[in-house]
Design a protein around this nucleic acid. Sequence first.
DNA 1: CGTGTGCTTGAGTGAGGTCAATACCTGTGG
DNA 2: CCACAGGTATTGACCTCACTCAAGCACACG
Lengths: 237, 237
Amino acid sequence: MLNVAIKPLPATVAEIRHGSCHLRSVADREENVILRAGSCLYRMNDEIDEVYLVNSGALKVHRFSESGEQQILGFYLAGDIVGLDALPTGIACSEAVALDTTSITRIRLSSVFEGREAFSSQDLVRLMGVSLTRENDLAMMLSQRTADRRLAWFLTEYANRLTVIGFSPKEFSLPMTRTDIALYLGLALETVCRELAGFEEQGLISKDRRRIKLLDMDALQHLATGDEHPCFAELTH
Amino acid sequence: MLNVAIKPLPATVAEIRHGSCHLRSVADREENVILRAGSCLYRMNDEIDEVYLVNSGALKVHRFSESGEQQILGFYLAGDIVGLDALPTGIACSEAVALDTTSITRIRLSSVFEGREAFSSQDLVRLMGVSLTRENDLAMMLSQRTADRRLAWFLTEYANRLTVIGFSPKEFSLPMTRTDIALYLGLALETVCRELAGFEEQGLISKDRRRIKLLDMDALQHLATGDEHPCFAELTH
DNA sequence: CGTGTGCTTGAGTGAGGTCAATACCTGTGG
DNA sequence: CCACAGGTATTGACCTCACTCAAGCACACG
């Protein structure tokens, strides 16, 4: 069922999704962009008629409310598509900033819809669905009020995404600041620090500034989902 | 620019979007379903190869985390499309429940992609973009921690959507319980009550159970966005 | 070697969560 | 018609968690 909607992605994109970056076949016809850390891919209210495929590096996508508060809506790594939220109007309602030196491929929408692109509008639908699901996850998490859960969720989620693109989920270097994490999770910067310190004390992680080692993935996972850790289950029941 | 992606919706759907419910031309070829309050359109992990257009009534879409907590991801009214989050996999990762007697039109995806439908896959992309933006809004709001803002946002947002489909934004009857609102906004049920009582005391709204009157839309709007209300601005600066 | 930016830690406070009791509204059955 | 039950809404008392304010540290940069 639903064979029309979920047919496998074309090779080029599928490969990207799984970590290799052999995008040359597409890239030759498209523009490849390199962003330095801190520079902006697009800003709020920019007119854009393209989406962006991340080849390597990392981006944050954020929005500002009218009162000037910031919310980070997502972090994007290799294989992710950014800019989808501009599709309905053609106007970006968010801003994308490189956290690192980042390589991007522009994909013009007109060529997607005219079938001149390596992936079709059906693939676009599929990718938007993925984005939608991820946003739902974010909403789920934000409504779980406790800080430790949010942070555990963030770490495990991030680790999982690293696995998908072929990096070690156990030990990695975060591209974003503590402030970014706080804005993403809807917490205060200090709470992020404190909670990370707490995790380290409990032996769940070890950390040195941006460098993170996950020592007890299971426990973090259980924290994130709200399950009790098996060995503590009897304490709370 | 982006004329390919944002061409106007076909008449039938466009009309629905603006409140009239002349869907017959499409409905004849499709299944129309009536749901009673409390019954389920689809459940988590159902295989679905269709999306649903709401003709009238109201739905809530919610998810359960592994630990059994509930998060309501959205309320859907006439003209809204539900079921988009199942697109990437064909498996629903949420559950849709009628809050009221609700009329639904099923739209098979296969017929959309084969061009046999009154709207095309490009329209689908557009609608998904709208969904995505709405989810972003939800995430923005959930990260604003104060309860009064969340509730003000909820009320104004709901009123705006009523306007779009041709109902009065000033006075309406909520289809959902306080518990639903609480689960949507990531608050405790009691906080919703207290905050609503507070709004009433301040003369922003009047209420009688589900029946709500918005008395000072401006003030609510300012509360929601975090701006100070003009007449209070000097107090906080 | 100072300066800035990011990170960490402490102390105090308040918004909102939890628990609990009560009121209200609707439908059912005697 | 009234009694009762179950779902819904409201209000109060208490307490905890995370925010705020504040100060100190560490690393990178010119």
